[in-house]
Amino acid sequence: MSEKEQKPKKKSRREFLQDLGIIGVGSVLAGSAIFAGINYDKRKRPFDRSRVLKAENELLEIERADGSKVVIPKEQNFTYLQQRGRDGLEGKRFVMVIDLSKCRNARKCMNACNNAHHLSEDQHHMNVLKMQETKETPAYYMPKPCQHCDNPPCVAVCPVDATFKRQDGIVLIDNERCIGCRFCIAACPYSARIFNWAEPIHTLEEENMPYNVELNVPQKKGTVSKCLFSADRVREGKLPYCVSACPNGVYYFGDENEDAVTNGTTKETFRFKKLLEDNGGYTLMPELGTHPRVYYLPPKGKDYPFHDKDKEEAAEHLG
């Protein structure tokens, strides 16, 4: 981690300790005065919003290397990368299809993902689970990314608009905004979110890297992280890291508006709806009404064995 980053952090910690001291030792009257002030702010917020935001002007314009037009942030307290990451791609609705009959737990997706997003080995944006529904039904491997729900329970509960859904359907997290309350982790029924409990390990390349919402790198201590559908790659028209890393043709990724998904291994493109129709596609826990953008094809006619050593772990969740 760079010196530059460390200094302001230490300062803010010290400031916070002072605050704590003031609040803790100070009288209740002083405390309630602060809270009254907070409340006054809150009350006026909806009406004075634009003014408040202008006061914190942090606009940072970056000319894109390819000379294409610069997106001028609508809300001026975002950097260019933040604003671009929040808007998403116009006219797109990204979907992923995961063919469970092809997954053999090679875990290349997990490795590629962890490398791209600088995660430690215990952190998973993408997790290949050993699943079994009942004692009688067979076990299978199930890659589980964030489901990028169209009715995302995690985004609904976020108090600060740190996690958000873009116009192209991708759910991202802005770790410059996140306060680390972990409400989104509690609200996600798919356990798709992780938290940076300690200072993440920072690589040398991160040193001068501006924070990119679409990659969520550098990771920050005390903030939530999650699968991003590789929003940075998708912007360039490339398939996500996990999708292209798979050697077994498990993943399809594409644009629902174009009715097309492309297999990450063979790069063959299929009609999205037909693929689901022909193979009995489904979503995880549809009863929760989350409307995932990740679809699964059932583990029918698997062309690999489920390893015996994994059977015990798969059966653990039978209840």
């Binding site: 952090k9 803010s12 910690r13 400031e15 916070f16 907070i38 702010d41 809150k42 917020r45 408040v52 914190e56 108090p159 600060v160 608009d161 740190a162 905004r177 996140c178 306060i179 680390g180 309350c181 972990r182 938290f195 940076n196 201590k221 005390g222 903030t223 939530v224």
Partner: peptide
């Protein structure tokens, strides 16, 4: 909170 230094976000960006 993981980031108590960002407490004011709740008021600014609530």
């Amino acid at each position: 909170m993981g980031r108590p230094d960002r407490l004011l976000n709740v008021i600014i960006h609530g």
